[in-house]
Each structure stands twice: as C-alpha cells, then as structure tokens.
Amino acid sequence: MQAAAIVILNYNGKKMLERFLPSVLSNSIFPIIVADNASTDDSIEFLKSHYPQIQLLHLAENTGFAGGYNKALRQLEGEYEYYILLNSDVEVTQGWDKGLIEFLSQNPEVASVQPKITSAQIAGLFDYAGAGGGFLDDLGYPYCRGRIFDSIEEDMGQYDDTITVDWSSGACMAIRASDFHDHGGFDDRFFAHMEEIDLCWRIRSSGRKIYYLGSVEVRHLGGGTLARNSPKKTMLNFRNSLLMLHKNLPKSRFLKVYATRLILDLLAMLVFVGKGKLGDAKAILKAHIGFFNLKNMYNRHSMASNLPSGSNKNIKSILWHYYAKGKKQFTML
C-alpha cells in the first residue's frame, strides 16, 4: 500500500487547473490524481496534453463534491493509507502535503487534519472555507477562527498553532483512508457544502479526533465551481445543515433545535428580502422543502448521540454572539 495520494475533484475547471495545478505539482511529494465529475469543458483534453503523468479517474455523471469524492475514493480504496482532498482552486506551499501526512502518521488517534487556509484573492487575509480551524454551534451553524460569517480576519500569525477542531475543511483536508471508508464517506444527499462537517461529526462521535495544523498553509480562491453569492449555495448550506442535524442528533434534541432554526431561518429570509436578495430568500424556503424530501433517505448514525452538542467549543448560538453581542472575531467569544 502506498502512503498517500492528492485527489483533486474537477468539474468544468480547466481555468482553475491551468492556474493552480502547477503549484501543486512543484510543491508536492505525493502522487496527484484528478477525478473528473463528468466535465463538459475540455478539462480532460487539457490534462492529457499538458500533464500526462497525472492519473485521471473518469466519473460517469456529476454527483457533486460528496458523490464525486465517494465514487473516486472507492476506486482507490486499498491503494493508499491516506488521502489528501484538495480543491482545484488552491495554491499550495512547499512541503504542505508532507507536513499534513507526517502529522497524521505521528498521531494515530487523529483521523483528519487541515492546514491554515488563507485567501488567494486578498493576500494576508484568511479564507472563508476553514480559515484557522472550524467549529459548530449548538444549532448547526459553522464558524472558524479567522472567519465568522462575513467577518474575515487578517492573518498575523495568531492561529499558527495546532489544536483540535470540530471539522476539517473540504478545500484541503488530509484524512486516513480507513477513517473515511469506515465512517461511510460523505453523505451523497448533500451534493455539495457541509458534507465534510457531517463526516467529521460522525468521526468524532466514534472517539476519533480532528485537528488543525497552523504550521502548514495553503491559499484558496473560493467559488471556483459555485459563486459564494449564489442562491444555490445558500440553499445547499441551509438544507445540508438541517440534514446534518437530523442524522447526528437524538430525535428529541433535533426537534428542539429545528424549532429554533425555523424561527432563525425565517428571520434570515426577511433579512434577504430587505436587502433585495429575493433569490436567497427563496433558497431558504427551498432548503426546508428539500430537507423534508431527503431527511428519511439515510439511517441515523447510532453513535452520533455520544456528542449531543457536536462541538468542542460549546457555543450555543454563534448568531447571538455575532449579531447581538457584536463579537465578530473568534478571540472575542
């Protein structure tokens, strides 16, 4: 069995591959595999002509981030001890992959680890996805050190540490192959967004740990497949948050949380309407409808009740801290 593989999921991402793949090739020691999610652009032709040394996995249809990675990693099962899942719009630094895999090999109790993720758009700022390590509040809202909602901190070395976190970012996460497969991989229903948070919740419920390694840095562009201001992204985030809570919380706890989420999500709809973002307001309604359509398509994970709060940080409501108390940085919490 080989040590590790860097697996990049691609969907119509020729421009991202042109821009970011050179840094991955020049700064990595492990083999690179591109799994193509049935792209309709000329991504495959570009890779074959410019990077014939890269292994390609051809997926028959686009099943999103969750389904695409599940299919790709099933093909690789048994070949590698570790996977590094990397978005196609990430610029990496020298030794990044070695650092992540060495950390996992030296800490057998850790299932997954992410690096520090800064912005490839604005130098010196943290990125939206993962930033300095991610957490969940009791209502299922994710937040990060370095980024809470739309407030993004400058990277001044304040999160160059190594800590346990609630989840590792799908933009760049190293994970033991055994942990990925033993815990069922990503939930296909999610399609995209928050599937890594759900997987990390299930992994932690079995007693395994998730870590952030601030000594390794990558830079993420973001929005390479779906723009951050897209109503579809809004729908996926709200819907998948509910799916995650439904499958990972005890039923009695979920019902209480859902009642609160209904009120908060209604308020979010009104805020979007007030800002003239009708598409986002409709997206929240579609999210709840989608949740009810999908919620019974997955058996609850029996071990999830071992973590009723789902978090290491024990923040009841990040919304309350952010909007009511004005705590817009992690150090204020």
Rank of each mutant, 00 (worst) to 15 (best):
G184N: 14
E195K: 09
E153T: 03
H193W: 06
Q121C: 04
V165Q: 12
W167S: 12
S178K: 15
E154M: 13
E195D: 10
G130V: 04
R145F: 02
D160G: 12
G170P: 12
S119C: 04
E196Q: 10
R189V: 01
S169P: 09
F186Q: 10
K116Q: 07
E153G: 00
D155M: 05
C172R: 08
M173C: 10
D150M: 04
A131S: 15
S168M: 05
G124T: 03
S169Q: 07
T162N: 08
D182H: 13
G184T: 12
Q114F: 00
T164W: 13
F135I: 10
V165Y: 09
L125T: 07
G157W: 09
A131F: 10
D160A: 08
C172A: 14
C144T: 02
G133E: 11
G140K: 13
Q121E: 11
W167N: 08
Y141V: 08
A129D: 10
C144W: 01
R189W: 02
Q158F: 04
Q158E: 12
D127M: 06
S119V: 00
Q114S: 12
V113Q: 04
P115Y: 03
A131P: 10
G132C: 05
H183K: 14
S168D: 07
G157S: 06
Q121W: 04
A171F: 15
I122H: 03
Y128A: 03
Y159V: 02
D187I: 02
F126W: 14
A123Q: 12
C172M: 13
I152W: 05
F180R: 13
L136W: 09
A192V: 15
V165F: 07
M194S: 12
P115S: 02
M194I: 11
R147P: 00
I117R: 00
H183Q: 14
Y128H: 09
E196H: 09
A177Q: 11
D160W: 01
T162V: 15
I152Y: 05
I163L: 15
E195S: 07
I175P: 07
Y159G: 00
I163Q: 15
I175C: 11
H181K: 14
G132S: 07
E195M: 12
D182M: 10
H183L: 14
A177W: 05
Q158W: 06
D179N: 14
E196W: 06
M194V: 09
E153S: 08
L136T: 00
S119A: 03
A120G: 02
I152K: 01
G157L: 09
G185D: 13
F191T: 15
Y159I: 01
F180Y: 15
G140S: 11
I122F: 08
D137E: 10
A171M: 15
W167D: 06
G130S: 05
H181G: 12
L125S: 04
S112Q: 03
P115T: 01
S119H: 00
E196C: 05
D155G: 05
R145S: 06
D182G: 08
P115K: 05
P142I: 06
I175D: 12
I152F: 10
A123R: 11
G146I: 05
F191H: 13
F186W: 11
P142G: 02
Q158G: 05
D137A: 02
G157C: 09
D155S: 06
D138K: 09
M173Y: 02
G133P: 13
K116H: 01
D166Y: 11
F135A: 07
L136D: 02
F149K: 05
